[in-house]
Amino acid sequence: MVCPLSELTQNPQRRRRGDAVLDTAVHTLILVFCVLCLIPFIVAVSASFSSERTLLREGYSLLPVAFTTAAYDMLFSTRQIVDSYKVSLFVTVFGTVLSMVVTAMMAYPLSVKKLRYRGAISFFAYFTMLFNGGLVPTYMLISKYLGMRDTLWCMIIPVLVNPWNLFLLRNFFSAIPGELHESARIDGANDVRILWQIILPVSLPALATVSLFYAVAYWNQWFNAMLYIEDASKFPLQYLIMKMLRNIELLKQMSSQAGFAVDMSALPTTTTKMATAMVTIGPIIIAYPFAQKYFTSGLIVGSVKG
């Protein structure tokens, strides 16, 4: 890193002092930003382990006030959280797999240069990013004409292919050297074998990256649930939180379901909300250290340009 020649330049002492100041400033600023990033998580964890009464009296803080697991006890004694967890898991796992299959199937041909109509098909997909019908027609289509209301499908099928991810993956495929196809073709492999035995194996990191993008999007999705789902047993976790944000009624229902004595002042509404948030971001926090490198590399390799 340090070029030996640089030490020949004038005033090395002053520069080294300047460097030290800059280094300190850089590290401090980064640390401050990271602390700010983490504080909300810490406050929320602490709140979820606090006693409702004390929290309401003393307010939120960095450490739990009057430590208790009451919020989690209440949360897990209800059917709702288990149902919602199942819904979120199903939508995420099944949705990601289905999205990946359809996206990769479409992305690969769009990267094959000999294909005559690939430009037209690319444009067909790209145009949807520039212009769309908007909320009302989509809503009518899905709820009235496709009959997806109150089904788990409405959280998967309408968002099956993300054009952004499609072009990301196509760019990955395009970056594979053409000689790889050519040599396989000379050896007599057909399109099916080239895709299955050459393209997909060398694209595993790319497939992992796009899968992660899809998985996070499915896990964090609540808009379609808000539009099309009324049956509480089909609420995904994120929509459960949305409901909790908007009405206290749901929490009351949940607690009566759990067989708690309905003493309104003792009902752990605030802390239960925080506990639900913790349970919801749990999988992301756990998977994060492993998945993080894909998020970073994915964005770098496939900058989307049509």
Binding site: P40, V43, A44, W219, N220, I241, L245
Partner: peptide, 11 residues
């Protein structure tokens, strides 16, 4: 990677 619903709770 945190959804806006969770951020709303944090807020």
């Amino acid at each position: 990677f945190v959804s806006w619903t969770v951020i709303a709770l944090f807020l």
